[in-house]
């Protein structure tokens, strides 16, 4: 695949948004979007972890798994790399920046099970991205995810005390809002195709 990393970066944010077109990271997206502040914290943590773990996973895949012919173990290895990185990041941030730890700390454990992190790692393997493309795609996906969760949190804080049908309260209305957002993002598709 020969797409310039720059284009891939923008495509990952808009035309193939990781959440609105690939449905990844829905669980934490639905549960942590009640307030703007926590949504922003989680989003930043996702960008951070996504970029670092994808770079690491790329290196592990092409310099360890492929030469050793154990590509079939990729799922388990990727999960271990992600879990270990998150733990390590937690320690480093706690040690060097207590202020940042205060904002991001509680979200880091949540991220280990965020499927967006794992999904992007699998996409980069399936689509044969090189290292730069992977970095661009991963950071772009992170920013796209942040954008989506911020939009939902903003809308949810506005409709909090509006009359919503009983059966739709909570997850139902969030899904409908997300559907409308996804519909709006369909407008971006066609600018560039990275599938």
């Amino acid at each position: 695949m020969n797409i310039s990393p720059f284009i891939l970066f923008w495509a990952a944010i808009f035309t193939s948004n990781i959440l609105l077109t690939n449905f990844l990271g829905m669980c934490s997206y639905l549960s942590v979007s009640k307030e703007m502040e926590s949504a922003f914290g989680l989003g930043v943590a996702v960008i951070f972890v996504l970029t670092i773990t994808c770079a690491l996973n790329w290196l592990v895949y092409y310099y360890l798994l492929v030469p050793l012919h154990i590509v079939y173990l990729q799922y388990i290895i990727f999960i271990i790399v992600i879990a270990a990185t998150v733990q390590l990041l937690e320690l480093i941030i706690e040690r060097f920046s207590p202020a940042l730890y205060y904002t991001l700390g509680i979200f880091l454990p949540l991220i280990t099970v965020n499927c967006a992190i794992f999904g992007v790692a699998l996409f980069m393997i399936i689509r044969n991205y090189d290292f730069l493309q992977t970095l661009a795609y991963a950071s772009g996906s992170g920013i796209g995810w942040l954008l989506a969760i911020l939009m939902l949190a903003g809308i949810r804080s506005r409709i909090k005390d509006k009359l919503i049908p009983a059966g739709l309260q909570g997850a139902g209305i969030s899904l409908i809002v997300t559907g409308i957002m996804a519909l709006a993002f369909v407008g971006f598709s066609g600018i560039v195709n990275v599938q």
């Binding site: 059966g167 997850a171 899904l175 409908i176 559907g179 996804a182 369909v186």
Partner: peptide
């Protein structure tokens, strides 16, 4: 993609 969001929301609504 959008239809999946709408259909799941409607399904949850009806079941609730």
């Amino acid at each position: 993609a959008p239809s999946a969001f709408f259909l799941l929301a409607i399904m949850i609504w009806i079941i609730n």
